[in-house]
Design a protein around this nucleic acid. Structure first.
Length: 477
RNA sequence: GGCCCCUUCGUCUAGUGGUCUAGGACUCCGGGUUCUCAGUCCGGCAAUCGCGGGUUCGAAUCCCGCAGGGGUCACCA
């Protein structure tokens, strides 16, 4: 058997949603699983939809996720170029073959005429079939009009590695446009030529193309080339579950997730698990395990909803399993601005305390800011505290003064602070809920924090004492 | 409307005629973890397998019908 060659063939529309990334991921996983090649081809045949800079965006997304292609616009090979806009002569050559064999002809109608044909079909509740209006005599093509495929309608049965046995009747076949009047080929024509020329063995593409496969099959025959293997994953559905995940529903670009501090390994793991599993109860997979276990016939046939909660859980799971050095490297760009005044050792110690609380890296500032700056005194923290709010200011002040005295004798190791805290519990005869809450609020001024003794030890005696004094001063003024 | 595809806990899924009174994960709920948040541990709720007929000693698993959902019917991909 020939070496497997798969491809990812996006249009440069400036947006990479989870669905397309998943298609790319599956194609890549399959290629790598079989020791084959994976390539990137840019389908830029629609000038109107093209967005400036999106090729760079596509490349950046794939690269960030570690989905590395073997050939592509920036990785030339004998099969290039990899932008369809640079392959116009190739499509022309294949179109000429079709013209010579009488299987392609120019479309004589203007857009208004076509539109009225279509309106008529809709009014009659029938599907629009251009071939019902195929002109009697076929003109010579002068390249100012669209070139259409002269189809040979028939029923087809074909196999799809994911969907199984598929079939369609001859009414699915039509005279579709091969080359537009602007000289660019349509997707329908270009991808067939390119996949053949680039020796693609497996076509992985979105569900929406299944309906067009009979047309492609018909064209393969007219071109006298063998059809590749089809593998069509089901769509990724939006949160409501009744339509494809789309930008309109607020679906994020994959890069947004990366920018929010989702780990690429977690993203890959989650996206792969959307519609694929290996039959075991394993949930967490390294990318190597994914490559090793991936199989097309384990893909789901029904659409899977994108559930962000599961992604969040998985991301937190990955973060917790990082070593501190790994976490420190990944968190580098997520620190609050004030952290730049602190050394790496201190920041690593902060990470040790917040690691298990982190769902994604962009939460880092909110969880750690009080380790770097003195937060303003927040009276809300006490007034909204169920237990502390029933105490008077004087009572709290007394308590905190006692704390102040006790802590003054501590060397601020975690062990000693724990001892002092316990001792305070007995001498004040207070519950931890009262005493520890008070100390935590005074020393952090944050709604939540890691455990008290650890947090105070890291903050250091100087900071803790000054914050307690600031709180005391605030009350007495 | 025509054609095509899909249908197991709220969600992602395991399951290919008996081991399924349907398993796992996420979410959610209760409890433990000296304060908070998170995590973690323990426990719990949750699908009569879309519905209706068959076939079979026996069906989530095979067959037929129906319903619901999705896709498509562009000089977009």
């Amino acid at each position: 058997m020939n070496k497997v060659r798969t491809r990812f063939a996006p249009s440069p529309t400036g947006y990479m949603h989870v669905g397309s990334i998943r298609t790319a991921l599956f194609a890549w996983l399959y290629a790598k699983h079989t020791g084959g090649d994976f390539l990137l081809r840019i389908e830029d045949t629609d000038k109107k939809r093209e967005v400036e800079g999106s090729i760079e965006h596509i490349i950046k997304c794939l690269h960030s996720l570690g989905i590395e292609y073997d050939e592509g616009p920036d990785k030339p090979s004998q099969f290039g170029p990899f932008r369809q806009s640079e392959r116009l002569a190739i499509y022309q050559k294949w179109a000429d073959k079709l013209i010579q064999s009488g299987r392609a002809y120019p479309d004589p109608y203007n857009p208004n005429e076509l539109e009225s044909f279509r309106a008529q079909a809709i009014a009659e509740h029938k599907p629009f079939l251009y071939r019902n209006h195929r002109p009697e005599t076929l003109d010579k093509w002068d390249k100012t009009r669209p070139l259409r495929f002269k189809s040979d309608p028939k029923a087809y049965h074909w196999h799809d590695e994911v969907m199984g046995e598929l079939s369609a009747g001859q009414e699915a076949i039509d005279d579709f446009v091969l080359i537009k009047s602007d000289g660019f080929p349509t997707y329908n024509f270009a991808h067939i030529v390119d996949d053949y020329e680039m020796q693609i063995t497996h076509i992985m593409r979105g569900h929406e193309f299944i309906a067009s496969v009979p047309n492609y099959l018909n064209l393969y025959e007219a071109l006298n080339i063998n059809q590749p293997i089809f593998a069509t994953p089901p769509p990724v559905m939006g949160p409501s579950g009744n339509k494809k995940l789309s930008k309109r529903d607020g679906a994020k670009d994959i890069l947004e997730y990366i920018d929010e501090g989702y780990l690429t390994e977690a993203l890959i793991n989650y996206i792969a698990s959307l519609g694929w599993n290996d039959g075991s109860t394993q949930e967490i997979y390294t990318t190597d395990e994914l490559i090793k276990n991936f199989a097309l016939d384990r893909l789901q046939r029904s659409g899977a909803r994108f559930d962000e909660r599961r992604l969040i859980w998985m991301n937190g799971n990955y973060i917790r399993n990082l070593t501190i050095d790994e976490l420190a490297a990944k968190a580098k760009d997520f620190w609050p601005a004030e952290a730049s005044a602190y050394d790496d050792e201190y920041k690593k110690n902060v990470l040790k305390l917040v690691q298990e609380r982190l769902k994604h890296l962009s939460e880092l500032p909110a969880l750690s800011n009080f380790f770097f700056i003195d937060l303003p005194i927040d009276h809300e923290l006490i007034s909204s505290n169920k237990k502390l709010s029933s105490y008077s200011k004087q009572q709290l002040e007394e308590l905190l003064k006692t704390v102040n005295q006790e802590l003054a004798t501590s060397n601020f190791t975690v062990e000693d602070l724990t001892d002092k805290l316990n001792h305070l519990l007995t001498i004040t005869d207070q519950s931890p809920a009262i005493l520890f809450s008070l100390i935590r609020i005074a020393t952090t001024q944050a709604p939540a924090s890691p455990p008290l003794a650890e947090s105070m030890a890291l903050l250091g005696k100087e900071h803790v004492m000054s914050r307690i004094n600031a709180q005391l001063k605030d009350w007495s003024s």
